[in-house]
Design a protein around this nucleic acid. Structure first.
Length: 727
DNA sequence: TGGGAGTGCTTTTTT
DNA sequence: AGCACTCCCA
């Protein structure tokens, strides 16, 4: 036990050994959060305060869950197999599989991933003849998910206008369709198991009594429904141990609700709020910068990271002429670092949006530097894999219309849109699935589809009793997928991926503990494929530079970090500036980015950048300015003049009505000068403050200019009326 | 049925 | 610019 606790700092120790009560651990970046969480579980078990079966631990990603399990088995001589440690969705899946009848689901219910869900919605709109211009499938998808994540079924949604009423109707129709087909989407996993537990007292009491300790990781990322789920499960007499960092909440845009942290404190009457503020990752200057940035946020629970590692190096800043030059500079710096012996995989290039990776990749490629971009297409999301899985889903459940529609004519077997329409109509009229409606069809359509139906039957019969990898192999052969891709020009990779799917199935079976008692291997594997899309990590072991968005970098750390594209409008993103709390989320994002670095941090921005095929003129990000000058070391050559920072500083003292920064992003049009003003010129407006002219049109008394006033927005102003003065 | 041309969108993203 | 998606014709 003493080994378990040795080398914990006082706050970590306090958190780990807290008496059984609700607790909120505010764990700053790099403060040993995962360590505290896993050691807490080990401590509870080792001291006899909990049994392995009595612990429930929830994370957001499969990676985090795996890490927790791995650390736990290293700490304790117990079998972690039966423990309830997993993602929200993984645990809900487990719950619903175990109690599928009480949850009113078929034993082999399938899970729709986002793409499947979208396809299902499109299909629904088509069947109902809904105008998809008025009700875009993607909007509807977000609407439905948002309702579910708020815990609302259609009848509970407030709808005050016709548009919303219609959307709620469609939500209801979508639910009917899913129920008919025996499929659930991601949000449904949560909502369904929440409802199962709230309605079924026997089950609820059973689980409430079983799980004496409920632990949550990344609590700041929970949405409303997840909070309600936790509250229900831990609502009896269990202890809820929540670990999170409000400063690292960067997923509000997809429903994470920071209010959960406050609600948790209040509703659970949390007596113990422990702050982990000692950082074991970064040098002092980096932490000072992070602290200085995040201090600009008003909505915080409050926390200040410190380290005893020493100040370390200054933060290097570079102002580039344009994006290519920025990339070129980054490449040069990296060459230097690598030349000094720095491992490439210890260097990360972070950016706000994926589109920015291209310029960087271009530069790295030309320099012959190996790199890896995170966040591409995942294995289980590839089309050939999804096709193969769809056939397997039909083996498990032929009424799965999503799977059916996907492959009924792939590889093509002469079944056109017309035939499918007939089939859907027949299915709708008879209240069956599409598969179930096949016998109702006559004529040509009937016979072509009959061939497909026979294929499914044959597949089902011939895979009966086979083990999982064999089922996969047979599916790939008999469906004709392998032949199809073999004959395709660029199909070699796809065939290889199909073979890889067989391997994945074999690995899945070999991995102990993944399959629940009494559940078929096939169903378990299909659920696994939906829940864990799998990283496509080609060359994982290679010593390559790491390229990723700041979001993707959360939870990771590197010796050297470059944050590029630090420009107003890009980072912070222009869309975020107009949203409520958007800017604070951007700032938290910057905080996350900065705290990824252990030893050296580079910041860079460009005066000009190509974006969406147009040149944008930008001003440095306010985040750069929020870092005390003493921590910065400017690397920009003198040649680029005083630079934009100097200009920005001047603008800030221009007068009380001026915003603290000049215009955010300017876009140049082809129109030239107008009435003495020119594109790109800085101007002052009595009401909107400082701005940049981005476009002009008309002449004489009709002349108008478009001015970007940064936070005040982009406006067209008539020169004859507006009191614009050169700045 | 399938391919070529035309159209529109473009922050971040796990499950 | 680049990509996904739709539409229309052979």
């Amino acid at each position: 036990m003493s080994q378990l606790l040795h080398a914990l700092n006082p706050q970590q120790l306090a958190a780990v050994t807290l008496p059984p009560q609700h607790a909120l651990i505010l764990a700053g970046a790099g403060s040993g959060k995962t360590r505290v969480l896993t050691t807490r579980i080990a401590w509870l078990i080792q001291t006899g305060q909990a049994t392995p079966q009595g612990v429930l631990a929830v994370t957001f990603t499969n990676k985090a869950a795996k890490e927790m399990l791995a650390r736990l088995s290293a700490m304790l001589p117990i079998n972690t197999r039966g423990m309830w440690i997993g993602t929200f969705h993984g645990l809900c899946n487990r719950l619903l599989r175990t109690h599928n009848r009480d949850a009113n689901l078929p034993a082999l219910f399938q899970i729709l991933d986002s793409a499947d869900q979208l396809a299902a919605i499109k299909r629904l709109l088509k069947t109902l003849n809904v105008d998809d211009e008025r009700y875009p499938p993607r909007d509807l998808q977000h609407f439905i998910n948002a309702q579910k994540e708020a815990g609302l079924r259609p009848h509970a949604v407030d709808a005050w206008d016709d548009f919303t009423r219609r959307r709620v109707e469609l939500y209801q129709e979508y639910e009917n369709q899913c129920q008919r087909e025996g499929v659930v989407d991601f949000a449904e996993l949560l909502l369904r198991s929440f409802e199962l537990l709230s309605r079924n007292e026997i089950l609820r009491v059973h689980y409430q009594q079983r799980f004496r300790h409920v632990l949550v990781d990344e609590f700041q990322d929970t949405n409303r429904l997840q909070y309600l789920w936790l509250k229900l499960l831990a609502g009896g007499s269990a202890c809820l141990f929540a670990v999170g960092d409000d400063d690292q909440s960067i997923y509000a845009f997809r429903g994470a609700d920071i209010g959960n942290m406050h609600d948790f404190e209040r509703e659970f009457r949390v007596q113990n709020v422990i702050r982990l503020e000692q950082n074991y990752r970064s040098h002092g200057n980096i932490l000072d910068a992070a602290n200085a940035i995040i201090k600009h946020n008003a909505a915080r629970l409050g926390k200040n990271l410190w380290t005893d590692a020493g100040a370390g190096e200054p933060i290097r800043v570079y102002e580039a002429f344009n994006d290519s030059e920025e990339a070129r500079w980054i490449v040069e710096e990296i060459k230097g670092l690598v030349g000094e012996g720095m491992a490439r995989h210890e260097i990360a290039l972070l950016y706000r949006s994926n589109a920015q990776s291209r310029v960087l990749e271009h530069g790295l490629f030309n320099a012959g530097l190996p790199y890896r971009v995170y966040g591409g297409l995942r294995f289980f999301e590839r089309q050939e894999i999804k096709h193969a899985l769809a056939y397997m889903r039909l083996i498990a459940n032929a009424d799965d219309d999503t799977a059916f529609s996907r492959v009924v004519n792939f590889p093509t077997r002469g079944i056109g849109a017309r035939s499918l329409e007939q089939l859907q109509d027949a299915a709708k009229q008879n209240g069956t699935s599409m598969y179930g409606a096949i016998p109702l069809l006559g004529g040509k359509a009937g016979s072509a589809i009959g061939v497909f139906s026979a294929l499914i039957l044959r597949l089902k019969a011939s895979t009966e009793g086979l083990d999982l990898p064999e089922i996969v192999g047979q599916t790939i052969e008999q469906s004709g997928l392998r032949d199809h891709y073999r004959n395709e020009k660029e199909g070699a990779d796809r065939v290889a991926n199909l073979d890889e799917l067989i391997n994945a199935a074999a690995n899945f079976v070999a991995e102990e503990g993944t399959i629940e008692e009494g559940q078929s291997e096939l169903a378990a594997f299909l659920a696994h494929a939906s829940l864990e899309a799998g990283e496509h990590q080609a060359g994982e072991g290679d010593d390559a530079l790491q390229l990723m968005t700041v979001h993707a970098a959360k939870g990771l750390e590197f010796d050297v970090v470059f944050i590029s594209g630090l420009e107003e409008g890009l980072f912070p993103h222009e869309n975020a500036i107009t949203e409520a709390d958007g800017l604070e989320e951007e700032r938290r994002l910057m905080y996350v980015a900065v705290t990824r670095a252990r030893r050296r941090l580079y910041l860079s921005f460009a005066q000009t950048r190509m974006l969406h095929g147009q040149t944008r003129y930008s001003v440095p990000s306010r985040f750069v300015e929020e870092i005390p000058a003493a921590l910065l070391k400017w690397l920009t050559p003198k040649m680029s003049g005083r630079g934009l920072i100097a200009e920005a500083a001047r603008a800030r003292y221009a007068g009380p009505s001026a915003p603290s920064l000049p215009a955010a992003v300017a876009r140049r049009s082809e129109t030239g000068a107008a009435n003495g003003f020119r594109i790109g010129q800085n101007v002052n407006h009595p009401k909107f403050g400082l701005g940049v002219i981005v476009a002009a049109e008309g002449a004489g008394s009709d002349a108008r200019v478009q001015v970007n006033f940064g936070r005040e927005g982009i406006k067209w102003l008539a020169l004859a009326v507006a009191k614009l003065t050169p700045a």
